[in-house]
C-alpha cells in the first residue's frame, strides 16, 4: 500500500514535468532536476530492494533516513538555484530599466520640439 502511494506520486511528478515541458511552461534546465527526482522516486518504490541496498552501503540505519536526507539535499539545491536565478533576473531587469530610461530620453530629444508624451508613465 505504502509503495503504491510512492509509485503514484513519482509517476504524477513525471507526468507533470513532461506536460509542463510540452507546453513550454518549464525550461529544460529546471526540468532535468525534476525528471531525475521523479525517476529516482519511482525506482525506489518499484524496487524497494534498491533503496535498502543503497542505504546499507552508505551506512544509514534506516532506509527512510536516506530518503529524508536526499529530499533535504534536493530542496536545498532547488532553493539555491532559484535564489540565483531571481538575483540574476533582478539584475537584468534593473539594467533593462536603466537602458529603457536612457532610450526614452534620447527618443524625446530626437523628437525635439514635439510635446513629450504624457502617457509615457502609468
Amino acid at each position: 500500500m505504502q509503495s503504491l502511494v510512492g509509485v503514484i506520486a513519482g509517476i504524477l511528478v513525471l507526468i507533470l514535468t513532461v506536460e509542463l515541458l510540452r507546453r513550454h511552461a518549464l525550461r529544460e534546465k529546471y526540468a532535468v532536476l525534476w525528471l531525475l527526482i521523479s525517476l529516482i522516486g519511482v525506482t525506489f518504490t518499484v524496487f524497494p530492494g534498491v533503496l535498502t541496498t543503497v542505504s546499507e552501503k552508505l551506512g544509514f540505519s534506516l532506509p527512510s533516513n536516506l530518503v529524508f536526507a536526499l529530499a533535504a539535499l534536493v530542496l536545498l539545491v532547488v532553493g539555491m538555484q532559484l535564489s540565483l536565478e531571481v538575483g540574476r533576473l533582478e539584475d537584468r531587469s534593473q539594467r533593462l530599466a536603466e537602458e529603457l530610461a536612457l532610450l526614452r530620453h534620447d527618443l524625446e530629444a530626437l523628437r525635439g520640439d514635439e510635446q513629450p508624451e504624457d502617457d509615457a508613465r502609468d
Binding site: Q94, A97, E98, E99, L100, A101, L102, R104, H105, P116, A120, R121
Partner: peptide
C-alpha cells in the same frame, strides 16, 4: 521638464540610488 534647466531620465520603477547613479554614469559615459 517644467524647470527646463536640467535633462531628465525617467526610470520605469524604483531601483534605488545605486541603480539611479549607474544610469547617470552610463549617460555620462555615452
Amino acid at each position: 521638464r517644467a524647470d527646463g534647466s536640467a535633462q531628465v531620465v525617467t526610470l520605469p520603477f524604483n531601483i534605488g540610488v545605486g541603480g539611479a547613479m549607474r544610469t547617470g554614469f552610463l549617460y555620462a559615459e555615452r
